[in-house]
Design a protein around this nucleic acid. Sequence first.
DNA 1: TCTAAAATTGTATTCATTTCAAAATTAAAA
DNA 2: TTTTAATTTTGAAATGAATACAATTTTAGA
Lengths: 147, 147
Amino acid sequence: MNTILDIQKRLLQYNIKPSLQRIAVMQYLMENKTHPTADIIYAALSPAIPTLSRTTIYNTLKLLSEQGAIIALNIDEKNVRYDGDIVAHTHFRCKKCSRIYDLPKNFTLENKQQFLDFYITECQVYYKGYCKECKKTSINNEIINNF
Amino acid sequence: MNTILDIQKRLLQYNIKPSLQRIAVMQYLMENKTHPTADIIYAALSPAIPTLSRTTIYNTLKLLSEQGAIIALNIDEKNVRYDGDIVAHTHFRCKKCSRIYDLPKNFTLENKQQFLDFYITECQVYYKGYCKECKKTSINNEIINNF
DNA sequence: TCTAAAATTGTATTCATTTCAAAATTAAAA
DNA sequence: TTTTAATTTTGAAATGAATACAATTTTAGA
């Protein structure tokens, strides 16, 4: 279980002021490993925070992902999904039920026979960063995870 | 160079009737390896085919990608990008200029020092297919690239 | 040529996300 | 504690990529 203090610490660690709303979003993502959309998070938190606005959810998710406290997934072509687990791992999206699963650490296309839970039809690998031309001017403005 | 006959052959190979519009879209993607959006393709083809409709571009891109003749990329959070190169390869998106590059075949995070053209800040790996529950009912309806 | 099926077109709509300015909250200064 | 400035939140309006849909056009077969 994550205490409010743990969550505050996590936010401060990424230079995010821990407001009530930000703590709620961070906590939701830490406790719900379902890769939810902004709207799912809004619907879940709205009853407990009746004044909550959708814009705040979008603002918060943008801030948290830009600061590296969470990860934004573009695996679903309709909505952006969010993941509170920032340890590097790969994802699987079911084309029928649209659920997003975390794949086991040792999963590769070569050994996928061992993981018969997933029938894989496609794989996409996306790297992001700065190209040669844009590198010089932009590096300073970005927090870089040089993994 | 790709002749119209080459392009027709490619479409037929994926069970797509080679209409004028479909040939134009397929040809554009084969000759422009810039990972364009639907709208870029529309703007490029529209002068030569004045009656062309945006809907046709969307319909065609959907058909071609569903049939496996092209690949739809969700590397850009705003628009879907399309790639006529269906040989497995990975992509890089510059966060500043938004250009999408093909990465060299031998590129990995381990040897990325060799490829100093790209300063990488993040990597996403997305698998798609059918989960255990949905597997039984759906496999027959899908063309599966069992790579 | 006639007819049916398939493909294309254009308009209207949807819906996730963004913009923006006002209101509320927080933090800092006096 | 008051005052003031900066930050955050809020909700209404706007944006824009993509889809739905019905009408029109084209294609293919009888």
